[in-house]
């Protein structure tokens, strides 16, 4: 089954629309769903031109395609456990929160908290991801615990904060504090980033570019070969328990 949702131009286009109902599973029972613009509840067809082709008996066979000015759309794919969501443009905050299965593909950029506290499934973002990509929630101990997030552009600050499982790959640069509080899982940044692995106590963080503002509390072990890159291996963060692994191509201290 293919569900196509094309956003209608709205007069008050700057008010965000919370659309946690846009999850493949929900379309098995039809399109009588609602979304919220600020404090107003709206029917799905008030915001989107909805069209459905074919039918499906399980979430895995449902594909949802979103188009139009989707950058104001928050919480799409929250708690998703199967099926596919394809976003042709940019997507708003909290896309794929808590997802445990299925695939989300974003052709444009993703706003903050992409794949927050994700447990499984896959997110592919062709553009840039904003701050807190694959991170946890405020005050939470564990962020992402499983699944994969791949960003082909750049990522913002606090990438994969508190990650405890799963894999996050960013092909471009990442911002400040990538992999902060990391305690498990794998983070790979192909470009540069600032202060990776701050306060980490487990897991592995790879930086194929330069680690800027490198923290003074990582102990240098030696060099290793990894996926065709010669990387310098550190353990840390020794301010914390120091059981994490940080691999960087190059680094510079703020000395």
């Amino acid at each position: 089954m293919k569900v196509t949702l094309a956003m209608k131009p709205a007069a008050k286009s700057f008010i965000p629309i919370e659309a946690e109902s846009i999850v493949p599973k929900n379309f098995l029972a039809g399109t009588d769903l609602s979304v919220w613009r600020g404090n107003r509840e709206l029917r799905l067809d008030e915001v989107f031109s909805v069209s459905v082709e074919g039918d499906a008996g399980r979430a895995e066979d449902v594909e949802v395609v979103l188009s139009g000015e989707t950058f104001r759309l928050k919480r799409v794919g929250e708690y998703m456990d199967g099926g596919t969501i394809t976003i042709l443009g940019d997507i708003g905050m909290h896309c794929g929160n808590f997802m445990s299965g299925g695939t989300i593909e974003i052709h444009g950029n993703a706003d903050g908290w992409l794949g927050r506290e994700m447990a499984g499934g896959a997110i592919v973002c062709r553009g840039d991801a904003a701050d807190y990509c694959a991170s946890g929630y405020r005050g939470g101990r564990k962020g992402m615990i499983g699944g994969t997030v791949e960003v082909f552009g750049r990522a913002g600050d606090f990438l994969a904060e508190s990650i405890a499982g799963g894999t996050v790959t960013v092909h471009g640069d990442a911002g400040d504090m990538a992999g902060a509080e990391m305690h498990g899982g794998t983070l790979v940044v192909h470009g540069d980033c600032r202060r990776p692995g701050a306060n980490m106590k487990g897991g592995s963080c790879y930086v194929y570019g330069t680690a800027q503002g490198m923290l003074p509390t990582f102990r240098k072990i030696g060099t290793v070969q990894h996926e065709g890159h010669t990387l310098i291996r550190f353990t840390g963060d020794i301010a914390n328990r120091g059981k994490g692994n940080l691999f960087v191509k190059d680094y510079e201290y703020l000395d």
């Binding site: 202060r195 701050a198 306060n199 503002g213 923290l215 003074p216 509390t217 990582f218 102990r219 963060d237 020794i238 301010a239 914390n240 201290y253 703020l254 000395d255």
Partner: peptide
């Protein structure tokens, strides 16, 4: 942040790693 991390390590007695 770097100074605070360094102080934490020093208080724990891990002085040798600090640049």
């Amino acid at each position: 942040y770097a100074v605070l991390s360094a102080l934490r390590a020093i208080v724990q007695g891990k002085t040798e790693t600090i640049p």
